[in-house]
């Protein structure tokens, strides 16, 4: 005996009730449960749908689907970082690398020529704040649109959530602010050093580039990336 369409929908609800909020994982678990239930029915046809469902669910252990969800998040995080790296790398080819190089040189020269310690600290703190506050501000301003993008077509995809939450990149902006703040207590010999100027310029430019990729480049290619990652994405959009 096969499961009806209503019973399949019930299984979707069941996975949602057990903290599986992303459609991609729900689909896989629904098929798994459905196969298990059908197998149970093959041996004991009198078993009710609910009984068979509970028996299959128990096989996932005391934590239910939670381990599977947590591990899926980890694996998807890895995939997301690979995507960031793919677009980040593009900036190390001509002609884009020239822009990177120019930004690093401008910041280095600016810092190198700031002989006044307080002035230099001001520049470092200012640049760090621009990144941190810019990212946070953009994150809040775009909140509504991002939430809409996340549940486009009525379905929430795990990678989609990462893409439109900017992959938690605001944490990176926080790191850049901490970096800026730490210069307030830095000793003079650290600040008045060409290696500090160059290192700060490289780190700042890298953080800015990663933020740009996560906040603008990847979300603009959201649909494409979801279709590339999930073969079921296009099928379900047409349902």
């Amino acid at each position: 005996m096969k499961l009806s369409q209503d019973q399949i929908q019930e299984l979707y609800k069941f996975t949602r009730a057990h903290y599986v909020e992303h459609y991609d994982l729900q689909t896989e678990l629904v098929d798994h449960l459905a196969n298990g239930i059908e197998q149970q029915w093959a041996h004991s046809p009198k078993l009710s749908f609910d009984e068979a469902k509970q028996m299959e669910f128990k096989k996932f252990g005391v934590f239910g689907f939670m381990d599977v969800v947590a591990e899926r998040q980890k694996a998807m995080g890895k995939k997301y970082r690979k995507i960031i790296w793919r677009f980040f790398k593009e900036w190390f080819q001509l002609p884009k690398i020239l822009i990177m190089f120019l930004v690093i040189v401008i910041i280095s020269v600016l810092l190198y020529n700031s002989t006044d310690e307080e002035w230099k600290q001001g520049i470092v703190l200012g640049l760090s704040s621009v990144l941190a506050l810019g990212a946070l501000g953009y994150f809040f301003i775009t909140r509504k649109n991002r939430e809409l993008d996340m549940i486009k077509g009525g379905k929430k995809w795990m990678l989609g959530e990462m893409i439109f939450q900017f992959g938690g990149i605001t944490l990176l902006s926080n790191f850049s602010l901490q970096l800026g703040l730490s210069t307030i207590h830095a000793e003079g010999f650290i600040l008045n050093n060409i290696w500090f100027d160059v290192s700060f310029a490289i780190v700042w430019t890298s953080v800015a580039l990663v933020s740009y990729v996560a906040m603008f480049v990847i979300p603009s290619k959201g649909e494409e990336l979801l279709a590339e990652t999930y073969p079921e994405y296009k099928i379900t959009q047409n349902l």
Binding site: E28, K59, F60, D67, E71, R72, K74, A75, K82
Partner: peptide, 15 residues
């Protein structure tokens, strides 16, 4: 076990 299979599949896919 189901709790071990899917994490393993997802990890291999991400790799």
């Amino acid at each position: 076990t189901e709790g071990a299979l899917y994490p393993a599949l997802h990890k291999l896919e991400a790799e």
